[in-house]
Design a protein around this nucleic acid. Structure first.
Length: 507
RNA sequence: GCGAUUGUAGUCUAGUCUGGUAGGACGCGGCCUUGCCAAGGCUGCAGCCCGGGUUCAAAUCCCGGCAUUCGCACCA
C-alpha cells in the first residue's frame, strides 16, 4: 500500500489547474509527448533560462548564439546522429513483437561464443543483418516463429523533413542544439579574437521521435535544451576565465557522486560525498575544466533552490555513453524517490569538430596562443523542461494549514509580487493600478487579481509560487501604507508606498 | 510498438456490473452581505474522449480510433 501520494501527481494536477503547463493540441489528440507552457509556466521557464544565462554565459565571459533548428542531412551524417540515432527493427510477422536486429544478432553470437562476429555486427548494413538472421534461422523469442519471414525496418529517432520544392533536400530537426555551435565555432572564434578556453552556448528547441514519451515533461518529442560547448586546449592545464587564471579553491568543494564502480557493486547506494579534487585525482572527472563545470552546475542548482541532497552526479556506464562522448557525468535530481537525468556533462573531445572537418573537407582548426589546433570540448547539456519539472516537484511544500504551496526562489518564481485590492472598491482599485505602474516603472512585473476574497487570492498566489503579495486596503487611502505578505510564513509588514521600491530593492 | 489499465464540466468524483431525465463537491461569473488568510446566502456557467454498431432507448453493452497510467522494449 502506498501511503505517500506522489509529488509528481500533485504537481501535475496543480500545473494543469493553474495554467502552468497543458497538453498540446488536446482537442485533436493523435500525438502524445507534447506539452504547452501556460502563462505561469512560460514565465517560470523563461526565468530559469535567465538564470542559466547568468551562470553559464555572463558570469564567466562566455558567448550565446542562436542557430537553426533544421539542418541538412550532411550535418547529422558528420555528427554521427544519422547512424547512431537510426535503429534496425525487426518485427515478428506472427506476434508482432519487435526487436532491434543488431542486439538480437549480438546476443546470438555471444551465446555461440563467436565473439569475432559479434564485434562486427555494428558495422553491418541493415540488409546484411537481415541475411545473417535468415542464415542462422533466428526465431522470435516470444512465439518461436521464424524471423526470416519478417523484414528489417529502420527506426529513426530524428524527425525528418524536406526543404525546397517538390521532394527537396533531405533535412532533419536537430536532436540536440550543439551541432550549430560546432559549425559556427571557427568563424566566431576568429571574428571575436577569442582565447581558449571559451564557452559558446545556446538555448533552444530540439526534437526526438521518441517511441514512447513518458513522465510528462521528462521525455517529450519536442523539448528545450540549454547547452554550453566549452572549447579548450587539452594540453593547457591552466584554467582561465576571461584570460585570467582562476583560483582552484573550488576543487575542495564536496559533491554527491555515484561512480561506475559504485554502480557495479552489489550493494546499491545513491551516492558518496567526495571532493571534486578527489574525483579528479581518481580520473572520474577527466580534466580541470570538466571539474569546473561540475562546480558551476552545483552552484547553479543551489541557486535555483535545490538542496545538496536533492541531486547527485552520476558517472555513466560505458554502454550508456552517447556516441560522441568519452566520459559522461550526468546531473540527476531526485523526483519521487528516483533520480532523473536533468543535465548531461560530457567530454566530447574533438569528435565533432574533427568529423565536420572530415565530411566538409574544410579545416576546423584555430590558432590559439600561436598554436594551431582543433580544440577539445566539454559540454553541459541541460534539459530545460526536465529542470523546470524537477524544480516544481522539489518546491512543493505544505503550509501550516496543510495546503499544497509552491515555494520558489525569487529569481525563478513567476512573479515576485502580487497586487491585491482588499475589495472591489473604486478608490482601492485605482490605488492598486497606481502601484502596478509604480512597480512596472521600476522594472518589477506584478500579478494582479481582484476576484474572490482576499484569503482565496493569497491561497492561489501561494499555489503558483508568488513570493509576496501587496495588499491595498482602506487604510491605504488614509495614510498611503500597504501590507506586504510573505508566502513563506504568511507574515505581514506595513510599508508606506513612498518607501515601497526601496524596501523591495533591499529585500 | 506489444501487453495490461483507465477515460464523466477547468479540477475531483457518483452513476457503468443490472441500458431508462447525468448528480455532488471544488472552480468560474453575477447579485446581496462581509472585509486580511480557501466565509455565508441567492443565482447562473460548464461535462459523459471521438467515431461507428446493437437497441424503442447507450455515460452504461459491442467494435474501431485517440489519449492516460503501469510493465516490456526504446531512450538525452
Amino acid at each position: 500500500m502506498d501511503f505517500m501520494e506522489k509529488k509528481t501527481d500533485k504537481i501535475l494536477n496543480l500545473a494543469i489547474r493553474r495554467g502552468i503547463i497543458l497538453p498540446s493540441f488536446e482537442i485533436y489528440g493523435e500525438l502524445s509527448g507534447f506539452y504547452d507552457y501556460g502563462p505561469i509556466g512560460a514565465r517560470i521557464k523563461q526565468r530559469i533560462a535567465s538564470q542559466w544565462r547568468k551562470f553559464f554565459i555572463e558570469d564567466i565571459g562566455n558567448l550565446e548564439i542562436e542557430t537553426t533548428i533544421i539542418a541538412p542531412e550532411k550535418v547529422f551524417e558528420a555528427s554521427g546522429h544519422l547512424k547512431t540515432f537510426t535503429d534496425p527493427i525487426i518485427s515478428c510477422a506472427e506476434c508482432k513483437t519487435s526487436y532491434r536486429a543488431d542486439k538480437l544478432l549480438e546476443e546470438f553470437f555471444e551465446h555461440k561464443n563467436d565473439l569475432e562476429t559479434r564485434q562486427k555486427i555494428k558495422q553491418l548494413s541493415f540488409n546484411e543483418m537481415f541475411e545473417l538472421i535468415k542464415i542462422n534461422k533466428l526465431k522470435c523469442q516470444k512465439c518461436s516463429h521464424d524471423l526470416s519471414l519478417s523484414k528489417v525496418e529502420t527506426f529513426n529517432l530524428m524527425l525528418g523533413t524536406n526543404v525546397g520544392p517538390l521532394n527537396g533536400i533531405k533535412a532533419y530537426m536537430r536532436p540536440e542544439t550543439a551541432q550549430g555551435i560546432f559549425l559556427d565555432f571557427k568563424t566566431i572564434f576568429r571574428a571575436y579574437g577569442l582565447k581558449l578556453p571559451i564557452g559558446i552556448g545556446q538555448i533552444g528547441k530540439a526534437f526526438r521521435n521518441e517511441i514512447s514519451p513518458r513522465n510528462i515533461l521528462i521525455r517529450m518529442r519536442e523539448f528545450s535544451q540549454m547547452e554550453l560547448e566549452y572549447f579548450f586546449d587539452p594540453e593547457d592545464t591552466e584554467l582561465k576565465i576571461n584570460n585570467n587564471i582562476i583560483d582552484t579553491a573550488f576543487l575542495n568543494q564536496k559533491i554527491n557522486l555515484l561512480t561506475v564502480d559504485d554502480q557495479t557493486k552489489t550493494q546499491t547506494i545513491e551516492y558518496n560525498e567526495i571532493t571534486i579534487q578527489d574525483a579528479l585525482n581518481n580520473k572520474i572527472i577527466p580534466n580541470k575544466l570538466f571539474a569546473f563545470i561540475i562546480y558551476k552546475e552545483m552552484e547553479f542548482m543551489l541557486n535555483l533552490g535545490f538542496k545538496q541532497n536533492n541531486f547527485r552526479f552520476r558517472q555513466m556506464l560505458p554502454n550508456e555513453l552517447p556516441h560522441y562522448s568519452k566520459t559522461n557525468i550526468d546531473l540527476e535530481v531526485e523526483i519521487d524517490g528516483n533520480f532523473e537525468e536533468v543535465a548531461g556533462n560530457s567530454y566530447r573531445t574533438d569528435f565533432d569538430l574533427k568529423n565536420h572537418e572530415k565530411y566538409s573537407n574544410l579545416d576546423m582548426s584555430i590558432v590559439n596562443s600561436n598554436k594551431k589546433l582543433v580544440p577539445h570540448v566539454v559540454e553541459i547539456s541541460f534539459g530545460l523542461d526536465r529542470l523546470f519539472w524537477s524544480i516544481l516537484v522539489n518546491s512543493l511544500h505544505k503550509d501550516k494549514r496543510e495546503w499544497d504551496i509552491l515555494i520558489l526562489n525569487k529569481n525563478i518564481s513567476p512573479y515576485i509580487y502580487a497586487v491585491f485590492p482588499l475589495q472591489k472598491d473604486d478608490k482601492i482599485l485605482k490605488k492598486s493600478n497606481q502601484i502596478i505602474s509604480l512597480l512596472s516603472k521600476n522594472n518589477i512585473s506584478s500579478y494582479f487579481s481582484a476576484s474572490n476574497s482576499i484569503g482565496k487570492r493569497y491561497a492561489k498566489a501561494d499555489e503558483i509560487g508568488i513570493n509576496y503579495s501587496i495588499t491595498i486596503d482602506f487604510q491605504t487611502l488614509q495614510d498611503n501604507t500597504v501590507t506586504i505578505r510573505d508566502i513563506k510564513d504568511s507574515t505581514q509588514v506595513r510599508k508606506n508606498i513612498n518607501e515601497l521600491i526601496q524596501y523591495i530593492t533591499d529585500n
